[in-house]
Design a protein around this nucleic acid. Sequence first.
DNA 1: TCTGGGGTCCTAGGACCC
DNA 2: TCTGGGGTCCTAGGACCC
Length: 427
Amino acid sequence: MKAIIDCNSFYCSCERLFRPELDDKPVVVLSNNDGCIISRSDEAKSLGVPMAGPYFMAKPVIEKYGVTTFSSNYNLYGDLSWRVMETLRILLGKEKVEVYSVDEAFLELEEKGEHDWRQLGLAIRETVELWTGIKVSIGIAPTKVLSKMANHIAKKDKAGTQCVVVLDTSEKITAALQNTPVNEIWGIGAQYAQKLTEMYAVFTAYDLSLKPPQWAQKHLGGVVGIRLIKELRGQEAKQMGQELTVKKMIASTRMFGSPVKKLDDIKEAVATYTSKAAEKLRRQKSAANTISVFVVPKEQNHHTYFRHGPTLSGYTRLAIATSATHELIKPALALVERLYDKTKTYKKAGVMLSGLVPDTSIQANLFETETHNNKRMLMEALDNINFAMRDDMVKFAASGITRNWKMRQELRSPRYSTRWEEIFEVK
DNA sequence: TCTGGGGTCCTAGGACCC
DNA sequence: TCTGGGGTCCTAGGACCC
């Protein structure tokens, strides 16, 4: 059996942990730049605050009901996420836990002997809450897709299910499939949901589970759709993966705090994003052979629905894969020059590193030229300082010091658990 | 008159996820 | 006035080879 364990309103729960007076009160957490709402407590949901909606549109409701609002504090969430995952690894064994996202993990549950899956689920839920203070919901079923469905049902009726739902008989599975609309299936997004209901009269997960593989091959994204239908039928098609620690692509992208017009400001931003991306690259001991840069101009005429303006992008293939910041900044800035149009105003830019290969300069440095070795040592020193001090104590001049483009983050809570200066105080 | 076909590699782009 | 920031996988189709 498979289980998915999912933290309830994770970012809001993290904030509440240090502000217990907010339990039972409506809370929301905003995305970077205080742009969108990315986490809502149940109380905020029932006030009608929409998920992923822009903050400024929800503001009237938020102010009317006194919803407590936080900018995102990733230092805090990352640390608490680690504690939850570590708890699961201690309970079930390291190799049984597949971390799926910051607030979710799949578990492989032992099949041997008699099992009361519900009791097991409740026990895991209680231990995680006791050890970390974070409430979780658990879905247990024969496949990943069905366990996600079970989890979804648990979250919809927290009191009735005690946040644990088990689908372990074909009767329970069929009932769950019949009660799940296609748009709520894991793996069906807005595009497919619309196509399924409007063109093929497929309304529930049950309807979808009856479709033959040839149909899925044609209309549901090929093998992806075939696997999805198999999983709905209880046949495993998505194996427990190894942890994806080594990334195949690394990106660093941001909206600007306010629209930017000057080439120099964009170059500063892109240099900063490149440094960030290169740092992630070195952390996983990779080097990149391709760097791409994109900029997004501000949309001229704003219609009812929000759309990004056309993204302008370009890439450079490097002769030799590298992880050295200065070797990546140079081509990145050349790309900015190429993409820049002085008649436009920009609201976003980003850097992506791809074509990642193991960084051979690590093992091979016995044979490296001295200059190459120096480069390596420079990068290591820089990473160590920045890791110890945080927030880019040392950076390349190209990253600038004015930072006209920097994001807004006005409502961030203290980094209680990762900074001594901001540690929670009991008076 | 009649002009192959199969394999591989790469890239752009579309769909999805949280 | 103000709408996030990461990632993954897959497919189609072009380029190239023999």
